[in-house]
Computed example of a mutant assay.
Amino acid sequence: MSKPGIVSEYYFSDHYRVIVVEEGDSYIVSVDVYRSKWIFTDYTEKCVENTCLLLKELSPEPGDNRYVDLDSVSKIIIIGVKVDDN
Rank of each mutant, 00 (worst) to 15 (best):
Y27T: 08
E61P: 03
K82S: 09
S36Y: 02
N50G: 08
T51H: 07
V83P: 04
S59H: 09
V68P: 02
G24M: 09
P4V: 13
S13V: 02
P62C: 09
D25L: 10
S30N: 10
V81H: 02
C47A: 11
D32G: 10
V68L: 06
I28Q: 06
C52P: 05
N86F: 11
S36I: 02
S36H: 12
L70C: 04
Y67V: 05
E23I: 05
V20G: 06
E45D: 05
L55N: 03
D85M: 07
V18A: 10
E23T: 12
I6H: 02
E45T: 15
V20C: 05
L54D: 03
I6M: 00
I39Y: 06
V33R: 06
K3M: 05
R17S: 10
G63C: 06
T44M: 15
L58H: 12
E45Y: 00
I6P: 00
Y16R: 11
L54F: 03
T41A: 10
L70M: 06
S13F: 00
R35F: 03
E49R: 12
K75Q: 06
G80D: 01
N50Y: 13
W38H: 04
D84R: 07
N50C: 12
G24R: 11
V81P: 00
Y67N: 10
I6G: 00
K56S: 00
E49G: 08
V29G: 06
K46F: 14
S26G: 07
P60V: 01
W38E: 01
R66V: 14
T44L: 14
T51N: 04
V83F: 05
K46N: 14
D69Q: 14
I78Q: 07
